[in-house]
Structure formats: C-alpha cells, structure tokens
Nucleic acid binder design. Structure first.
Lengths: 129, 129
DNA sequence: CTGCATGCAAAAACTTTGCACCGCC
DNA sequence: GGCGGTGCAAAGTTTTTGCATGCAG
C-alpha cells in the first residue's frame, strides 16, 4: 500500500547527505531545486511518514521547528546554546538509566529521550579568540 | 524592575497546588475563576517569565502544548504513552551521563534534558483487568 | 509619576488536512 | 481504473506581540 514517489525518494536521499539535522523548511527549499512544484505539505507528509516507518528520525527540541535526522539508528544529540546547531554525539547506549528510573516507579519504563546541551566546538573556538 | 502582580502570584500559587504538570490552557482556565478578565497572553507571559527566573519549570514534550511544573528543583519526568499523563520520577541525578557524553566531544556539555516514557501505573492496572 | 504588567486582538510560527487531480501498478 | 501521492490552499494549534490602559512602587 506504500507507493513510491520521486518526491519521497528525493527527500530521503537529501537527508542522507546532510548531517546538520535540517528543519522542514530547509528540506523544502533544497528539494525545491529539483522539484520546483513540490509543496510544503508534501514535505511534511513524507517526513512524518519516513519517521513513522523508521527510515529517519524526528528530533523535537522543544524550541523552534522540528528537525530531522537521516540516520535511523539510535544515537544521542547535542544542542548548542549559542548557535543552535544540532550535532550527533558518539555515545554508547544509556539503557541503564531506564533501570534506574524504574526502581522507584510502579509503571513500565519503555525508554527515554535525552539530549545534551552546552557549547559546540565551533563556538568554543570563537570565544577563545 | 520586576514588579509584582496579583495575576502572577495567582499563577505561581496555582502551580504549587498541582502535581499533574498542567498546560497553559489549564492554568488559564483555573486562574480565570478568580480573575475572570485575565488573558491568555498574560498567562503565557507569566509562565515564561517564571520559568526564566527559575521559579517553575517548562516541560516541552515535543507533542502538544508545553506543560509547567511548579517544582523548580531539578527532577526527571515520565510521559505515559497511553493516557498522556506526565509524572514526576524519584530518581537521583544523572550527571554522570554528561561526563560520558563529553568523552568523545570537543565542545562543552553543560547539562541534559531527559524524559522517560512508557506505561503509567494507572494504565498498567487498566490493562490487567 | 514612571514604567512594568495587563487585556485584547492581531499576527506569527509551525503543522495538519480537505479536495481535486495526477500517475504508478 | 483504482488507489496512493501530490499541489494548493485553508484551517488548526500553539505561542508571541503591539498597543492603549491600569496599577505597583
């Protein structure tokens, strides 16, 4: 029932070339270069669809628009408080915190969402100058 | 420069009586009982102000509207995937994960935001029946 | 008085959706 | 040709903001 489309292919393909976790708007503007008639609604629909079927990840920072990650494998993210950049972190899984959280809790802990924040390497460099 | 207002007092006071992390809308409707003329804008302004000065916490789940917590002390939250409830967790600080995250990262890790998700005690009970 | 806070409404920011049409299987 | 996907635009949701007025210090 899932039918392929050039637009969706292009969106997925674009996302795999970017490591800066672009917003919907960024995806839209870039895909538009190849598909001048594509609509924002289509980008939203496909981005949501792709994240639902697990081919990409949606990152909701809570500030500003959602961002998307072409890497579907679980990993952690870092948000720079200075420039707003979103970076991938090299970090082993933190499943053990689920256990900690469950120790004093009567419900069921299925997982967690964590993001780290601070100053990114680039902004550190700027400050030192 | 920070001038007191009855509305803000009422909002802060209301929040300290609630442990279910109400949304702006909920706060608005409740405060309205005592201040029928209060506007949603005022509630937003005060909630944002209070969280900025650290008297309350803003919880951005990424889905639906933000929620607010009258307890300013750092603690972790749990989101129930079934009923949407937001609960406080009894959980010691997880500062050690900041260290882990920083081990392979050239920037500065100042902190993290984590929330856990799963099934809350109440929804567990319902399922068992 | 001075200026922050409020109420009101408009607008901004972000996202979803209804509908007619298009194109793949 | 049937059905999912698209483009377009309208509408939905959540939040912010400009402005005149009100009230605390």
């Amino acid at each position: 029932m899932l039918k392929r489309s050039k637009q969706r292919d292009a969106i997925l393909n674009f996302l795999t070339t970017r490591y800066d976790h672009p917003t919907v708007e960024t995806v839209y503007l870039n895909i538009k270069e190849d598909f001048p008639n594509i609509s924002l609604g289509t980008v939203y629909r496909n981005l949501n669809l792709l994240s639902k079927i697990g081919e990409i990840q949606k990152i909701a920072s809570g500030v500003g628009p959602d961002r998307f990650d072409g890497n579907p494998k679980p990993h952690y993210h870092f948000f720079c408080k200075e420039c707003g950049a979103v970076l991938d972190l090299k970090l082993e899984g933190l499943e053990h915190i689920n256990v900690l959280a469950g120790q004093d809790f009567d419900g069921e802990i299925d997982g967690h969402i964590t993001y780290f924040y601070g100053k990114c390497p680039e902004c550190m460099r700027k400050r030192e100058s």
